[in-house]
Each structure stands twice: as C-alpha cells, then as structure tokens.
Amino acid sequence: MIRLEHLTLSYGSKPVLKDLSLTLPGSGITAIRGPSGCGKTTLLRVIAGLEAPQSGRVTGISPGETAFLFQDNRLLPWRTVEQHLTDVLPRGRHGEVPRWLELAELTGEEHTFPAALSGGMGRRLALARCLALGGRLYLLDEPFAGVDPDRAGRILDRLKALGTPALLVSHEESVLSGADRMIDLGGPPLTVLSAGPDTGPLFPREKK
C-alpha cells in the first residue's frame, strides 16, 4: 500500500495539492482520470520524488523504487531505439532488449533514431524504456497518447502480465476499462471524487 498523507503543494499562489490524502493499492493497474490541469501529473511527480510537497509525505514507496514515464517522450536524439533500452538496463541484462521491444511492438526498429520514428512509435519507445528501467511501481503519465487503441490494449495486457503495480493517468476509455481500479479526480486543487471499491480507506477525506 502506498499512502499519500496530507500533501500540499502550490506553484506560486496556485494550490495544486491541498491537504490531499489517498491510499493506493500495492498491486494491479490503477487508472487515474480527471480533467486536464487538475493536478494528476503533479501527483505522479510527487510520488516519483521529482517534486517535493510543501507539507505532507508519501509512505510505502521511495522515489528510487519508481519508474516514471514523462508525458513528453524525452528520447535522446542521438541514441538508437536499442540504445535507449540498454541505457537503462544494467549491463548483465542487455539480453532483455528483444523482449522489451516485443512488448512495445518495436521489433525491427533496433537501429532507428528517434527522428525517424512516428509519434506513436516514439511514445511506445518511451514506454518500453520506462518499463525496462523497472522498479516497485510504474508511474505512467498518458502512456498511450498517440498509440492506436488496439495496440494500446495489447500493450496494457502485457503490462499487467509483468506483475509490477502501475499507476497510470489516461483519458482513453479503452485503457481505463482495462485497469483493475479507477480513481476519479477533480480540481485544482486536486480532490478525490471517487476512489473505487478496492482502494482501501481514504483518510482525512475532503473537508469541504
């Protein structure tokens, strides 16, 4: 279980998280849904340790144990598809490259540079790199943006088969319906509208 306790964070005078508390399951795929700008990305960034909350804390996971997929691909223009994976895999595990390529349906593109990839392929490469990095929790910000729904569904199934819990932000219905649980968010500041039946108790819930 991952607990977010009384998180508060504002950018300047704009509060994004205001005394937010939420318990996330320690297994399965949890989808997060909410209007754009409500603070979903900020929430993931706090869990990944990329953003420090002004107060509150995250327990049950440390930033070094997460693998974060950024909303923008952040591919390295000078590295090939294959190199993107070997860059995050430890030396002894370079043999896994074909497996990750297969998962993201990029087999055959080993020696392609990012400039020659289509939008969807670039997204899948960023996802494959994040999954190959691994950890105790995947934090995926719009993992299937620009990926066609059929393919997204197949990749989601493979993601489930990995067994590592994932928290993913998505707008696509097909992805949302494939998740084990769904959390509906509103905001800003971020509020939990519904956390689904399996997410455990929510504590100091919305005061408003």
């Binding site: 990329l50 693998a67 974060f68 952040r74």
Partner: peptide, 10 residues
C-alpha cells in the same frame, strides 16, 4: 527535461 530524465532514471 533530459537532465530531469537522467535523475528520474537513476
């Protein structure tokens, strides 16, 4: 953004 990626990806 790439430097942040480097940090996040250890």
């Amino acid at each position: 953004r790439l430097l942040e990626l480097a940090r996040a990806y250890r």
